[in-house]
Design a protein around this nucleic acid. Structure first.
Ligand code: ZN
Ligand code: ZN
Length: 364
DNA sequence: CGACTCGGACTGTAAAGCGC
DNA sequence: CGCTTTACAGTCCGAGTCGC
């Protein structure tokens, strides 16, 4: 079929582009029983994270390889950076318009980020152009560019054997059970009733104040989670949970309502560059909605008119200088030095050098 | 604005290590 | 021997260029 590739659409905007690392997503400890305190944030965690507002009109960001668009996390939407001196509260008020939880709907899943799907073997044309291919043999792209005749599978090189490695470091000894008494940097469950924040949320946040309970949808006095015989919680006496708090921590907007203890703040480090990074390429108008990208400079030197054409040798190219590996045990990829570090070049992300882990349950 | 380039992030998975 | 950990080999995203 000569239908256009469903991916070429110029609507490649708003790509979640995690840009983050496979690091464990920092999460939060269980909330205290009915009306108690929230524990402080777990150990090393990126200095931001908060809840975004839901976006009902959100569709699958980037459907993996010809996979049929799937309804993934249609809730999240970028949140504008907090005004100077302010930080988002954690979590965002469930009363936010459209917030699924407020509506009594099950909280959205953390959406582990849709993995990019790859074809087993791309055709030579696509491989050479570093473009997406598909299973079909005159692949879609080749058909589109009239290369159907040359659309053939390449030859996969055989993996080399006999490569020695250093000793393995076991990481997943017991797969089950909790973080136990670790350093607290183990991800824990999010407060019950709240969905997990999406990965890579670029803004600072703070913990909710003492006694905060999401307002019951029906105006009852018994918020969810209240023990059976528990006395009615004067829930309504609490003012609406503010979306933001002034920075620095410890300060509440206006006078702290009754029972509000000193803020249990997170050692938030205001993000120097809150701009997430929607996408929006330069010359692409499209529906410009937002977008304001810090323009990442990813300078690339382009060799003009040179080189044969396709088939640009990639990394692996491997040194042609044969040189047999002397069969030595040399571990290859050196692990990153610290936990949360952005990329050296385009990392709008957080630069968390994991300075000091905090005790998980050290309530103020 | 589409076609091209191409650096490098990601993915897939075979092979090396290890515990039992 | 089966499961885990590594890291090779390949895919392809997306920024930067070019040319029409
Ligand atoms: Zn192809
Ligand atoms: Zn092809």
């Amino acid at each position: 079929m000569s239908s256009e590739p469903a991916k070429s659409s110029s609507s490649s905007s708003a790509s979640p582009q995690e840009g983050a690392q496979p690091q464990p997503v920092p999460q939060y400890a269980q909330p205290p029983p009915y009306g108690g305190h929230y524990p402080p944030p777990p150990g090393p965690y990126p200095p931001f994270y908060a809840y975004p507002v839901p976006d009902p009109s959100h569709h699958d960001p980037n459907a993996p390889n010809g996979a049929p668009a799937q309804p993934v996390a249609p809730f999240f939407m970028a949140v504008p950076p907090p005004p100077p001196g302010m930080v988002y509260a954690y979590p965002m008020p469930p009363t936010a318009p459209g917030y699924p939880y407020a509506a009594g709907l099950p909280p959205p899943q953390p959406t582990p980020k849709a993995k990019r799907k790859q074809v087993k073997m791309a055709c030579t044309n696509c491989a050479g152009a570093c473009k997406r291919c598909d299973e079909a043999r005159p692949c879609d792209r080749c058909v589109k560019y009239g290369l159907a005749e040359t659309c053939v599978d390449g030859v996969r090189k055989e993996r080399k054997k006999g490569i020695k490695r250093g000793p393995y470091k076991r990481k997943n000894r017991n797969a089950s059970g909790e973080p136990s008494t670790g350093e607290g940097d183990q991800p824990v469950a999010a407060p019950a009733g709240y969905p997990l924040p999406p990965e890579g949320y670029p803004f600072p946040f703070v913990y909710p104040p003492y006694g905060y309970m999401p307002p019951p949808a029906d105006g009852q006095q018994h918020p969810e989670g209240a023990p059976n015989g528990a006395p009615p919680m004067p829930h309504p006496v609490y003012p609406p949970y503010p979306t933001m708090y002034p920075h620095p921590y410890g300060a509440y907007p206006g006078a702290p309502p009754m029972g509000y203890p000193p803020m249990m703040g997170a050692p938030v480090a205001t993000s120097p560059n809150p701009s997430a990074k929607p996408d929006s390429s330069g010359p692409a108008p499209a529906n410009g909605s937002v977008s304001a990208e810090p323009a990442k400079s990813k300078k690339r030197s382009r060799a003009k008119g040179e080189e044969g054409s396709r088939s640009h040798k990639k990394h692996k190219e491997a040194r042609a200088d044969d040189g047999q590996p002397s069969g030595e045990a040399l571990p290859k990829d050196p692990p990153p030095p610290s936990p949360f570090v952005g990329h050296p070049e385009g990392g709008p992300a957080a630069t968390f050098n994991g300075p000091e882990p905090r005790p998980l349950m050290a309530t103020m």
